[in-house]
Design a protein around this nucleic acid. Structure first.
Lengths: 148, 148
DNA sequence: CTCCGTGCAAAAGGTTTGCACTGGT
DNA sequence: ACCAGTGCAAACCTTTTGCACGGAG
């Protein structure tokens, strides 16, 4: 999976160069931190993960860089029940399982979900570009605890 | 649509009485404020909508009452991209169109979306109870502005 | 009468902003 | 050298908490 991270860094570099923006250490390390984990970290968790490598890093920068990465389309903002904003290193279409018991979020590959479409007449003139499905239920861990 | 609001107030009254909880003016007015609008107000917007009728109302109470209404299942919490927590007066299954330009949210009737399910092999032991679909795109207003 | 609910004020997060300095190109 | 990015501190906004009073059942 190391190669995947390298690929994302190159993607970031390309997007930044295309706009004449600098590729800083902070952007590199923050992107790595988000992509390397498959949970969905908050800005604060990203800060914690990166601060060892960049001791002078400020929380402000984490917010600003995450925002920039979202704008560039390198990562996604995730709207997590309960807690604050979270970030998701995956950018291919995928869906989420939200556990209503412990609040965790599990990714589901898009291919595991049958295609979703809206009848054109129901769109109210809304131009739909993408979608994601939020499944709500109980995760394996919580089911195990509940049955014991 | 006035009748619908009355019905929801009776529903609230029943749920509260069943638990020996009082039906206060604040709970009545806050529920009305959420149900009467078809957008998805924040706690602060609810406060603004109700403060004329209840001049001594405090923001704290709005938060507490909204929370209680969610617990009772009379309204739903909505996890909205960008902004803070929003509340949705509809409790039947429906989906949402999120405008990435202005941030507004439009309801979609559930019947307009084909049923979505996960193949059993993809559930990783997760027990799915419900789902909702988040469509992302551009709303009619923003499309109009963009084309001019 | 008894609790729960409410209002107020203050605290607690989480996120944003202004400004001077640093760093990538 | 230039301009965007960064760090710091303070501001901001939303949400939560402690405590005394007031109102519904």
């Amino acid at each position: 999976m190391r190669g995947a991270v390298e690929a994302r860094l190159r993607q970031l570099e390309g997007l930044l160069r295309g706009r004449g923006l600098p590729l800083t250490m902070q952007r590199r390390e923050i992107l790595k931190a988000v992509v390397e984990r498959n949970d969905h970290p908050t800005a604060d968790q990203v800060f914690d993960a990166v601060k060892d490598r960049l001791p002078r890093l400020s929380r402000t920068t984490v917010y600003r860089v995450l925002d920039r990465l979202v704008t560039l389309g390198v990562i996604r903002r995730l709207h997590h029940p309960g807690a604050g904003t979270r970030f998701d290193g995956k950018i291919d279409r995928h869906h989420h399982l939200f556990c209503r018991s412990c609040g965790c979020v599990i990714d589901v590959a898009s291919s595991a979900v049958e295609d979703v479409s809206l009848p054109p007449a129901s769109r109210h003139g809304f131009h739909v570009e993408d979608f994601s499905v939020h499944f709500v239920g109980v995760c394996p861990d919580c089911r195990r605890k509940a049955s014991s």
